[in-house]
Amino acid sequence: MTTVTQANNQLQQANSNALDTHSREFLVFSLGEEEYAVDILKVQEIRGYENVTRIANAPDFIKGVTNLRGVIVPIVDLRIKFHLANVEYGGQTVVIVVNVGERVVGMVVDGVSDVMSLTPDQIKPAPEFGVTMSSDYLSGLGSLEDRMLVLVDIDSLLTSEEMALVEHTTHQ
């Protein structure tokens, strides 16, 4: 699982210098062919996908729960959530563990590529679009040469009602 170790090393570096610069650092991950990014400060760690206990009667994108050093953490597969065609689980499948408010949640992604630094002028506002992914959950689009990174607002995404991760008072 070299990728995970490398990614974690990158993560540590990024975490250590994230506060130093004006630009913000993002962890870039891929879902299918698309590249997404989350604020590095939200990311707790990156680990392999293993040992997930299924939860009955939960939406299909909630893969279940896993044991993260004694803490029970739910695992969400963003690929299923965003209706990607190929959903496979292998040695390269990676779980990004993020901190959302007081909670810890794991997200399954196809892979983690690198940590990017974006200056404010590299971040464009997110257009109004998307049925599968409402622009409410985006904090913008990052443009980096010829790459486009979808900057995910992880807080609003994971605590949203449709993710069904958090109990909403209105809900039953």
Partner: peptide, 21 residues
């Protein structure tokens, strides 16, 4: 419910000897 939510039919979770939930 610490990190997830109430699951119908389930009261809580535990960790087994092999580390799984």
């Amino acid at each position: 419910e610490t990190n997830y939510r109430k699951v119908p039919g389930i009261s809580a979770a535990t960790i087994l000897g092999d580390g799984s939930v």
